[in-house]
Design a protein around this nucleic acid. Structure first.
Lengths: 164, 164
DNA sequence: TATTGTTATACTCTATAACTATA
DNA sequence: TATAGTTATAGAGTATAACAATA
């Protein structure tokens, strides 16, 4: 469900007062995220979930990264990543390799041959991103990205704007 | 878990490249929402969840609203609201009244005597909102709210800025 | 003892489908 | 037939705790 940007439920909603909700960041972020994820699902379908795409992207940008570092980078628990990474490995997108130097660690990489698949996914994600940003001017889009990074405490020295 | 704004996992994360993720609205919205919700939980504890507070706020702003209209206003399925509203009713925060004029409908209201409780919750939520917005200047905060509403297709005629 | 990764388990949020009662 | 609301159920995403293997 949920397609483009004009909200389908808008008609039903017209006569409802939102009270102070449109002034709360928490509320707007929840609504915006739901909207964007629904559009992501429309665009990518069964291919990957938003979380899976994030994992692939981080592994692609950090070949050899371990699960604990990946979890820290995403502010998730390591136990959350295990099943997702197993699924991506099973689908032939990721490769996990135990390190000879420390048998506890596993180095994560895109599977050989999965680079092209990943590039295609990334192009589809970027088309989706462009679509949801169409409601904003390029300057507004850039400013929204900047403010969200600021809210997250990135943009300081951190892994934000240039960051590769 | 998760407290104020300086990210605790920042140290672990420092040497990780985020690749294109900081340029994706979807990724930033997910991260920002997780951060804000964690702070909400720290601030409100057992009192109410973000979703529950949203329900109370909408009912307070639209006394007598029915569940189907409430669900439409939040872009949620009516079946999602049933258990949440039952819980809020059980806790003495909401009152549900079948309409004499149409026996299928239930009018929702804050329970008599729950207005003060709601006012307290709202004050705590607004303190939480002020805290998370502290990373932004007042102008940036206002602009972030505006851009999120724009992304959502609000701010057109709709129930956004003044809206009560 | 400490760390990495996995597993078992549970909780929350959401949806779909089937139901009831009312219209 | 259509609508409002409930219930059963399932799936995704997250966490905590306990574990095995390794250090």
């Amino acid at each position: 469900m949920s397609n483009g940007l004009p909200d389908p439920a808008a008609a039903q909603r017209e006569d409802v007062s939102y009270g102070p909700l449109p002034g709360y960041l928490g509320h707007l972020l929840r609504r915006a995220q739901a909207r964007v994820f629904a559009d992501f699902a429309d665009a990518l379908g069964e291919a990957v979930s938003p979380a899976e795409f994030g994992l692939l992207t981080l592994v692609a940008a950090n070949p050899g990264i371990t699960q604990v570092r990946l979890a820290a980078a995403l502010s998730l628990d390591k136990s959350t990543l295990s099943p997702a990474l197993a699924r991506l490995t099973r689908r032939g997108l990721l490769k996990r390799e135990r390190l000879a130097s420390d048998g506890r660690l596993q180095a994560l990489r895109l599977a050989p041959g999965a680079e092209a698949t990943y590039a295609t996914l990334r192009a589809r994600v970027e088309a989706h991103e462009a679509r949801i940003a169409a409601a904003l001017s390029p300057a507004e889009h850039a400013e929204l990205l900047r403010l969200l990074r600021l809210l997250l405490g990135w943009d300081l020295p951190g892994p934000s704007a240039p960051a590769r």
